[in-house]
Structures are given as C-alpha cells and as structure tokens.
Design a protein around this nucleic acid. Structure first.
Lengths: 186, 186
DNA sequence: GCTTCCATGTAATAGGTTACATGATTTG
DNA sequence: CAAATCATGTAACCTATTACATGGAAGC
C-alpha cells in the first residue's frame, strides 16, 4: 500500500490536514504498523486532489502557512472501497536486531546483553503507549489493532527474557561447575 | 542495514555465491526478518569486491554463467565487526492487513472474515516452515531467531482467532437474542 | 532562552524492486 | 512438456527519506 492510499483511508474518518494525517500515523491505532513522512504525505495529497479523490479548502492563518483541510469525495470513497477488495500485501517484520543476533559470537557478551536490554526496553515503551491508547475511546477496529500490538509486543518481551541465554551463554557452553567435558577445554 | 552489510554478514559464515546468498535470505533462520532481491545483491557484491571487503573467484561452468564464489577478507570481517557495534535500526512491523482492519465497516462481513482466514493461514505456514527449520542442526544464534519467529507468529495466530469477533461482529453490536436495547434498532 | 508545536512544501539523494536478457539441466 | 532450478547481470523505474526553507506561538 502506498502513502496515497493510506492518506485516502484516513480521510474516510473525516477531514484533516496533512499535518494531522502525519500525527494520526504516529499516534493512531496503527502507529506500530505503518509510517509516512511529510515528504511523502504532501505530494500524495496533491496527487489525490488532482485525481479528484479529495477536495481541499485553504484556511488562511496568521503567521503560518495556510492550513489546507482535505475532505474525501464520493469518487475517493469509492476508489478506496475498491482498494480494500484487493489482496493486501503480506505483513513484513524487518529486524536488524535479529539478524545481528545471528552473529552474537562476533560480539562481546556485554554488547549482546546491551542489545537485548535495549530491545526489551523499546518494546516495553511500545506496550505502555498502546495501553494508554486503549484507555481512550476506540472503535472496534482500532481496539483490534491496538490489542494486536499489545499482545505480540508483550510476547516479544517475554521471549527475549526467557531465551536470551541462547545468545548470551555462548562463551560458556558447558556448565562452569562440574562440567563433565571441561577437561578438553582446559 | 543495507543489503551490502547483510551480504557481508552472511559471508562470515563461509564463502558463497550471490545465488546462495539469496537462498540464505529466503530459507535461513532470519527468513522472516530480512529480504533482498538479485537486483540488489549482485551490485552489492560488486561493491564489496571493489572495497576489498570480499574476494571473488570465478568457477567456469558448462552452459551457465560462471559461478562466482565470494569470500570475506580480513578487512571485510573487521568492517562487519565494526558495523555490529552501531545501534541497530529499530524493528519494523508493517501490516497492510491491520490498517485494513480499521476500515472493517467499509467491507462486507465475508470479506473481513476472508481476510482474517488468509492471515491465519499465512502465519500457520510460516510457523510450520520455522518448525521444520528448527529440526535441522542450528547454532544458538539461529535457534534464538527461529524461536523468536515461532513464538510471535504463534501468538499472532492465537490473537487473530480469539479477537476476530471485534471486527466481525460490527453489524450486530447487540446480542441478537434477548438484546435489551434492540427495540430502538427495530 | 531553548525546544516543541504548528504548517506546508521542494529537491537531492538513496535505496530498492521489477522486468528483462540468456540458457542449460533437472524435476514433475 | 512445462516448470522450477541454477546463475549472473543491467536498466528503467518508483518510492520514499532526508534535509532544507520559512516562521510565529506556546510551553518549559
């Protein structure tokens, strides 16, 4: 899905400015599962206007640039509904961290532990943010998405805590005490 | 992380051709968390050779193009170890499906159910593939990564099964039987 | 006084995907 | 007999990110 379609979708919830759309991507229910920068949102909005999928009314403002409020048109709504009938692109989970973990033997033990600590902290922050969000009045679809995030991020934290030894204990394969096969290593 | 660094990392495991690197990205432990196409791998390998991070020996072959076997150099190894000291880019989970779910009220009930069924099926396939992988002899780092995938994808399936009603029951907000507030809707 | 919020936009750049070209051999 | 596997590579294209430009107001 390109930014253009994502913006169009957001506008089915009501009119908004480019700035507000960006904020919705950052703070909305799908915050963890989508992203777009101004550099892609503003051009997308222009293209949507060209295509007649949205209309734009400029609100003159004091010191700032005119606020441009976009509204979806019937044509836009219809176009978006059609888009919803297409097969969605497969989920993508990209993790440099996990790739790094494959090379834990090339890093110091403290480096590996540090990376995992950071990862856990990051996911804890995400979960807390989602918990806050879920306290606000959400529609069912939003509850579904936020709950999804809470669930899998919590599972992620649990996994990291319970399996970190797999990449942290590489230098002490055998138990340091009473290790039967230690003779060879010494 | 760019494709160049990812290729370099793979080559720390041993020499390989571009073709094999692609396969490793597709079938290896991190299969679900990284991807790269030939169009990016081959140029990356050329650049790495230019930079002295890898060396290349061509194996003449019968009908096919010469097989080019790449090996990492000491300089390359050192470069990669340094790369491992940098802060990894944050995990990214992109899901068009979840974004779509926010608009479940713009879709038919059967469309929503179909999307969820597909999603469950996709994750089940992934989990099965990872289970197969985990039966082969894996290093600790690989076990960690594969286990990660198994765990969170399983959690995903569970969540979808137990919470799908949130987006499937939108047309029957009240319980159809003995719904106290049904009078207004009829 | 510094940072964040508001508000839009453009241009350079980077990075990657897709499709194409080539072609034998093996598997179904 | 068709499809997948092996094997490399290029070029066109697309898309998005980053950094920049502008600048007042409000909060810390």
């Amino acid at each position: 899905m390109d930014v253009r379609t994502a913006c169009l979708g957001l506008l089915t919830f009501g009119e908004a400015t480019g700035y507000e759309i960006k904020k919705a991507f950052e703070d909305g229910a799908f915050r963890s599962f989508i992203d777009a920068s101004f550099g892609s949102i503003y051009p997308a909005l222009n293209k949507l206007t060209e295509d007649g999928h949205v209309t734009c009314k400029a609100m003159v403002q004091d010191g700032r640039p005119d606020k441009k409020i976009y509204s979806i048109t019937d044509a836009g709504k219809s176009f978006f509904k059609d888009a919803l009938q297409e097969t969605p692109q497969e989920d993508k989970f990209r993790s440099e961290f996990l790739f790094w973990m494959t090379f834990s033997d090339l890093m110091s033990a403290s480096r590996v532990s540090g990376l995992i600590d950071n990862q856990i902290a990051q996911y804890q922050t995400k979960v807390e943010e989602l918990r806050q969000l879920s306290k606000t009045g959400l529609q069912d679809g939003e509850k579904f998405v936020v709950g999804f995030g809470e669930t899998i991020f919590t599972a992620t934290i649990e996994y990291l805590k319970t399996h970190r030894h797999l990449v942290e204990d590489q230098f002490t394969t055998e138990h340091p005490l009473h290790g039967g096969a230690m003779a060879a290593a010494e």
